[in-house]
């Protein structure tokens, strides 16, 4: 079936101890190992594969790469062909190139972001097991995030230079990787320039989002929580830990998600969000937000601009 879901994100952090504390004790992920180059691996309690977050030591913040999991190893060959037909250079790496993973297919998005596809990763199981499991495990920390849900990438859009990598990424993901569009923002005199694209392979409104920016980077990574009350409690967790909150608990128009945004100690934006919004399906009519309703789409309650949210990226 090709791409199943997001597999992991590899992040750059400037202070590893502070980052480990954040992802373990504030987000509440479980530390599952150390990679061959000192990378720190984490997973959510509800995930079964060994990790969904890789932390790497760096002199800057941002994302090294994002990886999506495909169903069968043979999918990698097929998708590699499709990408090449589309004109994208691919490299097939041997098992072990990504820690604890099988073969990994690498390519670079039109926006410049690095991406891998893989079919196999060591599985360690959910914290509650699979035999008569409890609904949640004891001893969760911080927000107790269930899983890494999606990434939102800031993609270079510069109309004066004719650059729109949101549109280019969208086309590539649709045509070569089989992603579907759930929601978009269209701008311009004829409302035909796609500057925001939310795309999915699962049944949720987005597995990846492409957002416009002066330059490309990481906008945010997002973790799933159950309920609106969990989002409120996430706000408490952030305050308790002196974590810089970007946007206190609110609701998005786009995806209907209930959300809170904050920053990790290196400045990478995190989100915990609740509510699966709606059932996304390949034949679902695409939802469009008009240029003058963009902020309503982003922050449904106020509908007001909050410049740091669109401008601040890593």
């Amino acid at each position: 079936m090709g791409v199943m879901r997001i597999g992991h994100v590899s992040l750059r952090v400037m202070d590893m101890d502070a980052a480990i504390n954040h992802y373990a004790n504030v987000i509440g992920l479980i530390h599952t190992g150390t990679g061959p180059n000192g990378e720190q691996l984490f997973k959510g309690w509800d995930e079964w594969d060994k990790y969904s977050i890789i932390l790497t030591q760096s002199d800057r913040a941002g994302m090294n790469h994002v990886a999506y999991k495909v169903e069968h190893d043979a999918d990698l060959d097929q998708l590699s062909e499709k990408l090449q037909e589309y004109g994208v250079k691919t490299t097939m790496h041997k098992a072990g190139h990504l820690p604890d993973c099988g073969r990994a297919l690498h390519f670079t998005m039109p926006s410049g972001h690095e991406m891998y596809l893989f079919a196999e990763k060591d599985a360690v199981g959910k914290a509650v097991g699979v035999r008569n499991p409890a609904p949640w495990p004891d001893g969760l920390k911080g927000t107790g995030a269930h899983w890494l849900d999606h990434v939102a990438l800031a993609c270079e859009v510069n109309p004066d230079k004719g650059i729109n990598t949101v549109a280019a990424n969208h086309d590539l993901f649709r045509d070569a990787l089989g992603f579907y569009l759930s929601e978009q923002v269209l701008v311009g005199p004829d409302a035909d320039i796609r500057v925001v694209a939310f795309m999915f392979r699962t049944t949720t409104p987005h597995d990846i989002a492409f957002l416009p920016n002066e330059k490309s980077g990481l906008h945010h990574i997002s973790f799933f929580l159950d309920s609106w009350h969990d989002i409120l409690k996430a706000g408490d967790v952030m305050a308790k830990n002196n974590v810089k909150i970007d946007i206190p608990p609110t609701r998005h128009g786009i995806t209907r998600g209930e959300t809170i945004y904050f920053f990790d100690p290196s400045g990478n934006r995190n989100e915990t969000f609740a509510g699966l919004g709606y059932l996304a399906q390949p034949d679902m009519p695409v939802i469009t937000w008009d240029e003058d309703q963009t902020w309503r789409g982003i922050f449904y309650h106020t509908g007001e601009a909050h410049a740091p949210f669109t401008e601040v990226i890593t």
């Binding site: 970007d246 990478n268 740091p308 401008e311």
Partner: peptide, 12 residues
């Protein structure tokens, strides 16, 4: 001063 990530990562 523009306020951003407060983590030394975004540069604003």
């Amino acid at each position: 001063i523009t306020s951003g990530c407060h983590g030394g990562g975004c540069g604003v």
